[in-house]
């Protein structure tokens, strides 16, 4: 059992780590800024620093925070829904669904119609993938069944994305865009992407009060119902939130794997399984994790974010599988 002191300090500690990462993230880059310059830039007292901070680094930073929070919270929601701590957007194909939706929208030329077309297409794709997983492995299904359903969906949706990709190889611009969704990254994210990611804040606010009910649901749907939880309604809310959080993160940054698995799981190991605590800490922790990974990517000369999170996440996943066996 984690001590009461650890539990009290968890959220402030996460926020502190996040603030340090934010500061470092604004300071380092092709044009390094001192702390003083960052501050002056933030207050627009130094024109050059202001341009670097507000035009170049801040949108990417905010995109990273929102994407990280969304993927981490999406993983937490899916773990409670499926009653399985290995459920996560990447492993179950929900991210791939979002990417397939986004790629199809781009290939059809819809993405240029409005800023909201792309996230909407991603939401449709993610929701379809989520319903397919539920059809293949009901909640409370064994880990094997759930992961195999994810394997099948990932393969299928990867094929869809590759097909669309191969049909549009003549168009370099589209192709590079499509590759971007598959590898996942935060390069050139501007203020329009922050706007696109902003519904994540709403989803997080809606998720916040559901923590207690998620506790009960994660120990069994009938049991939760008998104790007074409106399970039907809760499940609908959780599904909608999981789909929206994953899809919007995917629309902004492409498929970024393992965040929804690693962050909630690691925090659960440290802080215990109570969702009233895990929801806020996962949001902040996910934001910090993706920001840290993106910092490493930037420092390592432009490694893609999706590659970095997989390098960290895949060994963690294998360790978890070994631990469960």
């Amino acid at each position: 059992m984690p001590s009461a002191r650890l539990l009290r300090l968890a959220l402030p500690a996460c926020i502190l780590v996040l603030l340090v990462l934010v500061t470092v993230s604004l300071a380092v880059g092709d044009m390094p800024l001192s702390l003083k310059q960052v501050w002056q830039g933030l207050l627009r007292q130094d024109e050059l620093a202001a341009t670097v901070v507000w035009q170049m680094r801040m949108p990417r930073l905010l995109s990273a925070l929102l994407v990280g929070a969304a993927l981490s919270a999406g993983g937490l929601v899916m773990q409670a829904y499926f009653r399985n701590s290995l459920a996560s957007p990447g492993l179950l194909g929900v991210s791939s669904g979002g990417a397939a939706g986004a790629v199809i929208a781009i290939a059809l030329g819809w993405a240029s119609l409005s800023i909201w077309t792309l996230p909407l297409a991603a939401i449709v794709g993610s929701a379809a993938a989520l319903f397919a997983v539920i059809g293949l492995a009901r909640s409370g299904a064994s880990t094997e069944r759930l992961l195999l359903a994810g394997v099948a969906l990932n393969a299928l949706l990867g094929a869809v994305t590759s097909y669309v990709l191969s049909m549009h190889t003549s168009l370099y611009e589209r192709n590079s865009q499509i590759l971007f969704w598959l590898l996942g990254g935060l390069e050139d994210r501007g203020w329009e992407h922050v706007l696109m990611a902003s519904p994540i804040l709403l989803a997080a606010a809606l998720l916040w009060p559901l923590g207690r009910q998620m506790d009960l649901l994660s120990l069994g749907a009938r049991e939760a119902q008998s104790l007074g939880v409106d399970v039907r309604r809760l499940r609908h809310s959780l599904l909608a939130l999981a789909a929206v959080l994953t899809a919007i993160a995917t629309a902004v940054a492409g498929t970024v794997g393992f965040v929804g698995l690693v962050v909630p799981h690691a925090l659960r190991l440290i802080l215990g399984p109570e969702h009233r605590r895990l929801v806020p800490v996962s949001l902040v922790g996910g934001a910090a994790f993706v920001l840290a990974c993106d910092l490493v990517c930037r420092s390592a000369g432009g490694v893609k974010l999706g590659i970095m999170t997989s390098i960290v996440g895949a060994p963690f996943f294998l360790w978890l599988l070994r631990r469960q066996a």
Binding site: M1, R83, N84, S85, G140, D215, S218, L219, G220, R222, E223, S226, L227, G228, V229, R268, G272, P273, E274
Partner: peptide, 19 residues
């Protein structure tokens, strides 16, 4: 209903380590 009746299943599977 949660206040008026309890139900205990035949067997329970706990995935998460709640105390």
């Amino acid at each position: 209903r949660g206040r008026l009746a309890s139900w205990v299943p035949q067997e329970a599977r706990f995935e998460f380590g709640f105390s």
